[in-house]
């Protein structure tokens, strides 16, 4: 496990997402009003870029075919009954910087 400094909050507009490539992972970081949530930037349906989706409350709608993914837990909330999901990453705001916690394998690989 390792925490990585990603970017300043100003780089992610309110209720939008931005993609960032770090440690071999493509991650989508969203700004939900000062709270930043990060998920894998690959829609479980056909790989759509979630960072380009429309934010709907605590979920994001994939820009390709409108699957809806919960940003808190990565689960697919629409269509109902899909058991797949995306990975989520812990985030924190410190020293005016958004940090993301990368998963164990990455650190081991590093």
């Amino acid at each position: 496990m390792s925490w990585v400094r990603i970017t300043i909050p100003e780089n992610i507009p309110l209720r939008e997402g931005r993609a960032v490539r770090v440690g071999g992972e493509e991650i989508a970081v969203f700004n939900l009003g000062g709270r930043f949530l990060a998920v894998e930037n690959r829609c479980p349906h056909k790989g759509g870029p979630l960072a380009d989706g429309i934010v709907s409350g605590g979920t994001v709608v994939c820009p390709l075919h409108n699957w809806k993914i919960c940003l808190e837990n990565g689960a697919v909330t629409k269509p109902a009954g899909e058991s797949c999901g995306v990975a989520t990453y812990a985030t924190r705001l410190e020293d005016g910087v958004i940090w993301i916690e990368l998963r164990g394998e990455q650190e081991a690989a590093a």
Binding site: V4, R5, T7, R18, A19, V20, R21, E107, A109, A110
Partner: peptide
Amino acid sequence: VHPTQFVQIQPLEEVLV
């Protein structure tokens, strides 16, 4: 309209894979 409208965000620190 926003500095990162078109650019991909570069992480402040790189993590080697």
